[in-house]
Amino acid sequence: MEQSSRIKPPMGPDNGWWWQEVANDVLPIQRCKNCQVLRHPPRPMCDQCRSMEWDFVRAGGGGAVFSYTVLEHPQFPGYSYPIIIVLVDLEEGTRITAELVDCDPGEVEFGMAVTVRIQEDSDGFKLPVFYPVIAQEGE
């Protein structure tokens, strides 16, 4: 029962491609081929024009913290606590949910500039995490 690594996403046609790009060290943002609108999380249909044709752009990785929380309890196997969870507004548009690393939980702030890094777990699984652009001095 004990699980020593994070819960992996099921890889379906609507999301597996995204994780495959991440495994190639890319942060992808899905783009409607018809109207060019970006969307995240990935979905099969564009809610603006109902096109099911899409490709993706490579995010530059920069963004700003829109909201955050620090997970302390309960603690599940496979994760290291505390975990800072951030919603990041990406520079290209769209918002993504991810972990903030290299930051003291007391120093995360709304609007903080962050950038992405593709992190590799010990079991080889890769996922995007963000870190502060400038090391925050304690106030």
Binding site: R6, I7, K8, P9, P10, N15, P41, L71, F76, G78, Y79, Y81, I83, I85, T97, A98, E99, L127
Partner: peptide, 8 residues
């Protein structure tokens, strides 16, 4: 899964 993967 978008959230569980991060421990949410």
């Amino acid at each position: 899964s978008w959230y569980q993967v991060y421990g949410m």
